[in-house]
Nucleic acid binder design. Structure first.
Lengths: 123, 123
DNA sequence: AGGCGTTATGCACAATGATATATAACGATC
DNA sequence: GATCGTTATATATCATTGTGCATAACGCCT
C-alpha cells in the first residue's frame, strides 16, 4: 500500500531495494515516536517485519540508520541517526522531484486509466 | 528483478500498480517478438503469469494494450496496440526524466551504500 | 487429415512473505 | 526488588504469489 498517489519510487542497491515508500514511512514514524514497535503499530505491521526492515537498512548502508536501546525509562527505544535522517530527507526530496519531473506525462498517462472498480475493505 | 540500476518507477492506479518495470519490459518484448509466450520465455517467466500481466493491463486502461489471435501461421500471436506502444513509450520517458531529476541526490545516496556482498546465482 | 505453436484457462504444488506467539534480556521507575 | 514496555529472536502458522502440468480451441501448413 504505497502512500503516494501517482508514482512509487524505489532506490535499488545491487541486490535489493535499499529504500522505498515502506521503509521511508517506517523510518519517519520511528523518528517521530522513538520506537520501532510504536511505528509498526501505527502502520499496522508486525514488529518482526518492522525490525527486519530496520535491520536490512542498517546493514545496507555504510552505517546504521536506526540505533536502539533496551530497558530504561520507556522500556527501551529507537532513534534515527543523522545518517538516517539525511537519507530519509533525501529520499523524500527525490520522490518530490521525480514526481514533478513526470507530472505532465503522468497526466496523459492517467487519462488512459479506466476508473477504479469498487474494492472490498478488510472486514 | 528490475532492470534499471538506480531507481524503480511505478505508476499507480487507485487499487494496484498500473505500470512498472516488469510490465513495461514484458510489453516491449511482446512488441518485438509478436508473442506472449516468447516474451515470457525471454524473461524466464511462466506463460501464465505473463498472460495475467497482459490481462491486468488490458483491463486497467481504457482499451487493450495487447491484442491476441489463436491459430494461424505461427500458431497465433500477440500484438501491442498503438495505445500500448504509446503508454510504453511514455513510461520509458517518465523513467528517464525521473532518473535525470534525481540523479544528483541519487549519487550522494549511493555513496552511502555499502558495497554489495557476493550473491548466489540460480544453479 | 494431421501436426504445430500459440492463446486461454484450471488446478495442484512450491516458494515466498507476513503474522502470530513465545521467550529472554534490559534498565529506569515505583 | 518487582513492574513495565521495549528490543531481539526463534518457531509455527497463515496468506500471497508464482510455477508446473494438463487441457482445449484455433487456424495455417504440409
Amino acid at each position: 500500500m504505497p502512500r503516494y498517489p501517482g508514482l512509487t519510487l524505489r532506490i535499488l542497491a545491487p541486490g535489493a531495494a535499499a529504500m522505498g515508500p515502506g521503509k521511508a514511512d517506517l523510518l519517519e514514524r520511528i523518528a517521530r515516536t522513538g520506537s520501532i514497535s510504536a511505528a509498526a503499530r501505527e502502520m499496522d505491521m508486525s514488529y518482526r517485519r518492522a525490525w527486519q526492515l530496520v535491520e536490512s537498512m542498517n546493514t545496507a548502508f555504510t552505517g546504521p540508520l536506526v540505533t536502539t536501546a533496551t530497558g530504561g525509562k520507556r522500556g527501551g527505544g529507537a532513534e534515527v541517526t543523522p545518517l538516517g535522517l539525511d537519507l530519509l530527507a533525501r529520499f523524500r526530496k527525490m520522490e518530490l522531484s521525480a514526481s514533478k519531473a513526470i507530472a505532465a506525462d503522468l497526466k496523459r498517462f492517467s487519462a488512459r486509466l479506466r476508473p477504479a472498480r469498487a474494492k472490498r475493505r478488510k472486514p
